[in-house]
Design a binder for these strands. Sequence first.
DNA 1: GTGATATTGCAAACCTATTATCATTAAGAC
DNA 2: GTCTTAATGATAATAGGTTTGCAATATCAC
Lengths: 128, 128
Amino acid sequence: MKSQRKTRQRKAIRAAIESAGRPLNAHEILDCAGRDLPDLGIATVYRCLKRLESEDFICRVEIAGQAARYELAGLHHHHHFFCDDCSRVFDVPGCGLAALNAPEGFAVREHEVVLRGLCSECAPATAL
Amino acid sequence: MKSQRKTRQRKAIRAAIESAGRPLNAHEILDCAGRDLPDLGIATVYRCLKRLESEDFICRVEIAGQAARYELAGLHHHHHFFCDDCSRVFDVPGCGLAALNAPEGFAVREHEVVLRGLCSECAPATAL
DNA sequence: GTGATATTGCAAACCTATTATCATTAAGAC
DNA sequence: GTCTTAATGATAATAGGTTTGCAATATCAC
């Protein structure tokens, strides 16, 4: 087994994800972590994400038509909100799903709920 | 404005979508419509889908990590089920969503619910 | 049937997210 | 500090779905 080294890059990437409070994609992470490490490369971000995911430190959040996003693993069951304006993804606490309605014979293993609309920052601007 | 011609290809593609009873992606449509028209090309399928969508005859169904699927437009509100085994997408009647839970200030315009698991055909096989 | 042209099929081109390559850099055990 | 080698950054390469270019074909108004 190869040892892991604590690099500035990994620290910055982990910090970005931990402090975001919402799922980030590779570029958002690059932008965020890149503020401290201007030379940070996108390849490093992807490599690090892959590793963090295999270590179950983060989990992937996939939204149709969007690049994969990542957030801390182990959060309480929740769903996501996609802002049509700024394309940011936010966590929606809890689960509003009351019934599954799957057809007879279908075995549901998991479910996803994605709300779409305008986040609190974009809603006012668009409403004007 | 250019007139539209009724070609065998378009008829076969529309028929495939109308008779499917579930959302199909370009390749599924090619396979299905291709049974009657062996020479049908994937480019024609894409061109036709684009047109049918702009005419609001069909609507796009997007599922994370999957190629776009299409189904007849104007169906009653419903959601989708993705089979982890055969990768087919099925319609789930109704909507089990009781609450949206969007954060304060967020404006929800629409929502998607995707169930994942095994369809009735794949569930028994896997359960053995 | 004839002719104008919308449509097709094939293949090459695109696009965008992600991965691999590889020379260079820098952790960290000694 | 030295050395081994894991990790990085820049860039080329992938991969898959989708689009486009173009010559050949088929629709349909006449």
